[in-house]
Design a protein around this nucleic acid. Sequence first.
DNA 1: ATAACTGTTATAGTATTATTATAACACTTA
DNA 2: TAAGTGTTATAATAATACTATAACAGTTAT
Lengths: 130, 130
Amino acid sequence: MLITINDQDPRPVYIQIAGQVKEQIQRGELKAGDELPSVRELAGSLGINMHTVRHAYSILRDQNLLVFRLGQQAKVASLRSQPAGTKEIATALNRQLDELLTEAFLLGLSADDFRNLINEKINQRKEQKK
Amino acid sequence: MLITINDQDPRPVYIQIAGQVKEQIQRGELKAGDELPSVRELAGSLGINMHTVRHAYSILRDQNLLVFRLGQQAKVASLRSQPAGTKEIATALNRQLDELLTEAFLLGLSADDFRNLINEKINQRKEQKK
DNA sequence: ATAACTGTTATAGTATTATTATAACACTTA
DNA sequence: TAAGTGTTATAATAATACTATAACAGTTAT
């Protein structure tokens, strides 16, 4: 669990932490059931307060990415246990995709350029899996 | 220029404004050279302070989306006049695309699912242009 | 020229949010 | 029982966001 705080980053610390943990989950570096460092431990190693870490974790719990149980460390949630369902998340994905497309076209990319870019990235991932 | 402030939104007002203006530029509702409402005018209609609007505009200027000239209202920048060049923006696009891909795959989408989704969206845009 | 607009800069004060500091509580595990 | 979890509560401090005024420098139209 490598978490760093960037003083130059204008975003609050708890957002930075939540973002980094989220990324590690999305990248598969943290898998369902994996334990996170305790709020006191992470806070200690980062030199910040316990509650700031807790705040970060709580946000991810609200997004159903983490699961808390009293007396135990926070764990990465299993994907199936997302009560929000795929529906809402899919709409979020749609929105993000729309934004990305407009941005790409703004940059002067053609539809084919974009398709090629996508294919490149997909192939990169396939190779990494090998 | 329809700009609204959502009190429920945890993000600061200047971020909300900057975000909405940015979206309108990306959607083509605001085109290069279009004038934005003056900071005093927009602030007045939103019931907020001049400097808050200015802060929002300044962020977009730093992103090379707006151009300021003393004595004149802020204008939407022409895309070619982005000194940062396509390079940095392209890396931002790359990063966003990576995040989106991981998120999509997390949701269980296959590579083909994703390609189909992209194609649908591209076709939607082509139809809108007609 | 002048009046009425622009954005710019400066200074200050207030309001809100983020962070820290302590402490006690409830629960789990060894 | 002891040492580790997250939880809750309260309070104080630090940092950020927002407002309030005012003056300045440039533009545009009268």
